[in-house]
Design a binder for these strands. Structure first.
Lengths: 225, 225
DNA sequence: GTCTATAGCTGGATAGAC
DNA sequence: GTCTATCCAGCTATAGAC
């Protein structure tokens, strides 16, 4: 148990939709139960904040099983991390491969991001925490998705549309960072904003749903000349 | 030492400006050396990822000294956390107390945020990680700064300027979340972006400096009708 | 104030029975 | 595949000498 020596007390009222791809919770075997339990604990308490014993107890198995299926705690974490990362990147990169006008691509991009993150709201914090403590490894994983190619393509669209006077004078990189910031950060701040304002998870979901539309307007007004 | 069992290898090339307020590194006593060392380790490896022994060794003291000055590891962490938080909030809230036009307040806000975060680039990740694992306590600290009052004031400005047709139809909360996202997130992503693009800390600082101006343009174009 | 030594516990991982 | 028992390195915290 993580009770005794933890920093601060923690009520644990985070929105409980874990980024579980399968969904076959009930019929799952030991291996899947371990993955599902570990995902929840790693998301909530981080890698160092979660012990293999916590995972074993909470999943109703034992520490030997974790090592049997995943060789080590690190091995288990990597399985979960890659799964989360893949969810986040695959669909976004598909949208960015389009050849339509930048303003339209950006709108699809925002829609896709928000739809995705409403479903998996804890992924951003999870990935950012891991990235902050292990930039090298996370960067290696990012590179396996060929971000440079995706960037070049998008930069091409920006140059094309700027040449036609459709959008303002922003470099592609700055646009990308702005979009990612506007889409991802509301989810990273989510738990804190909810705590401060005292609103429920459902009410925050409603807010996020409306916020998405404002972000789309905001970006379109900013981008289009 | 945190070497043997750590997750992934870690080169540790994060920009090394720690959010040290005093600056009296050289003449500092034991207490200050512990705080400075602990800050760096907590920022890089998190609370659970840092041991009191790490802090004692790296600061050239011993574990007994840490407990002598700070009672516990948690006590030491809280000192550092509050210091970081105060740096981030105090100056921003001062800017938001203005009565000038929203577009001008927002521009000052962005300038203040970027100036501050260029100086203390690791604070956002540090606070967000702590907030993600302990929303209740962090929220308590936030509330001691009276955010509701600051929000109401800013919402008043938004309503006033919208009545005069100066800005578009965005609710105040959505504007705030957008600004915070656009200012803070580039620093949270910084280490990862640098790793992927391979650019140096200095070069990233240059990029951030230019990016600030694009954010100001971006927001002004989005906001002003 | 500073240090060494150590208590007492919890961590990841494995051996070996079934 | 599953489980219990166990190793031992690591952790936080403190006792007690100086």
């Amino acid at each position: 148990m993580i009770v005794s020596k933890r920093l601060f007390s923690f009520a644990g009222e985070i929105t409980k939709r874990s980024f579980n791809m399968t969904g076959k919770d009930s019929v799952s075997g030991v291996r899947q139960r371990i993955v599902d339990t570990a995902r929840e604990l790693f998301v909530e308490n981080g890698f160092e904040g979660t012990s293999v014993r916590d995972i074993a107890n909470a999943s109703g198995t034992n520490v030997a099983m974790v090592n049997y299926y995943f060789q080590s705690k690190t091995g288990l974490f990597e399985v979960i991390f890659k799964e989360a990362f893949d969810i986040l990147v695959t669909r976004i990169f598909a949208v960015l491969g389009s050849d339509r006008p930048v303003a339209d691509v950006v709108e699809s991009w925002i829609n896709t991001y928000y739809d995705l993150l409403v479903q998996y709201p804890q992924i951003p914090s999870f990935i950012l925490t891991a990235a902050s403590h292990n930039p090298s490894t996370v960067a290696g994983l990012v590179e396996s998705y060929n971000p440079a190619e995706v960037f070049e393509h998008f930069a091409g669209l920006v140059e094309r549309d700027r040449g036609q006077g459709l959008i303002g004078e922003y470099p592609a990189m700055d646009i990308i960072i702005n979009i990612v910031s506007l889409c991802v950060f509301p989810f990273v701040m989510g738990p804190l904003v909810r705590k401060i304002t005292g609103i429920s998870a459902d009410r925050y979901d409603e807010f996020i749903h409306e916020h998405k539309e404002h972000v789309i307007d905001f970006v379109r007004n900013a981008l289009v000349v």
